[in-house]
Simulated scan of single mutants.
Amino acid sequence: MTKKIPDFKSLEEAADYWDNHSFAEYIEDTEPVEIEVNLTKHRIILEIDSDLSEKLKKIAQKKKKSYDKLIGSWIREKINQEASN
């Protein structure tokens, strides 16, 4: 017996629902999709003190960027400077 996937009002509601239900019961209510995966980026863990982290978040908010994108752009700039020396 297949069931129809409910309409959820929020991500929280959906998460709660899927915590208690098996997706296998709804497999026939799905359709295949194609996705593209970019494997050229790498995620790293960077340890910084909390004071520096707060300053970084404030700068990122002013620039309307996520702090990881801001750090990435700063690293890219520095690497380009060093590479041209």
Rank of each mutant, 00 (worst) to 15 (best):
Lys58Ser: 03
Glu31Met: 00
Ala24Ser: 13
Glu34Gln: 09
Lys69Ile: 12
Glu47Ser: 01
Thr40Glu: 01
Leu46Pro: 07
Pro6Cys: 00
Gln81Ser: 15
Asp16Gln: 00
Leu70Ile: 11
Lys4Ala: 01
Ser50Trp: 00
Lys57Gly: 14
Phe23Pro: 12
Ile71His: 03
Leu46Met: 05
Gln81Phe: 11
Glu25Asn: 03
Trp74Ile: 15
Ile44Met: 11
Lys63Asn: 09
Leu70Met: 07
Asn85Val: 09
Thr2Lys: 02
Lys65Ser: 10
Asp16Ser: 02
Lys69Phe: 13
Leu46Glu: 00
Phe8Pro: 09
Pro6Leu: 06
Lys41Val: 11
Asp51His: 05
Lys57Ile: 12
Ser73Trp: 11
Lys9Asp: 14
Tyr67Thr: 10
Pro32Leu: 05
Gly72Glu: 15
Tyr17Thr: 07
Glu77Met: 12
Tyr26Gln: 01
Glu13Asn: 12
Lys78Thr: 13
His21Leu: 05
Met1Phe: 04
Trp74Phe: 13
Glu25Gln: 04
Pro32Ser: 04
Thr40Val: 05
Tyr67Val: 10
Asp19Arg: 02
Glu13Phe: 05
Glu47Ala: 06
Glu34Ala: 06
Leu52His: 03
Ser66Pro: 12
Lys58Gln: 10
Trp74Thr: 13
Tyr26Asn: 05
Asn85Pro: 03
Lys55Met: 08
Asp29Gly: 04
Phe23Arg: 02
Glu82Gln: 08
Pro32Arg: 07
Glu13His: 09
Asp29Lys: 06
Asn20Ala: 08
Glu36Gln: 09
Asn85Met: 10
Pro32Lys: 02
Lys9Cys: 01
Arg76Lys: 15
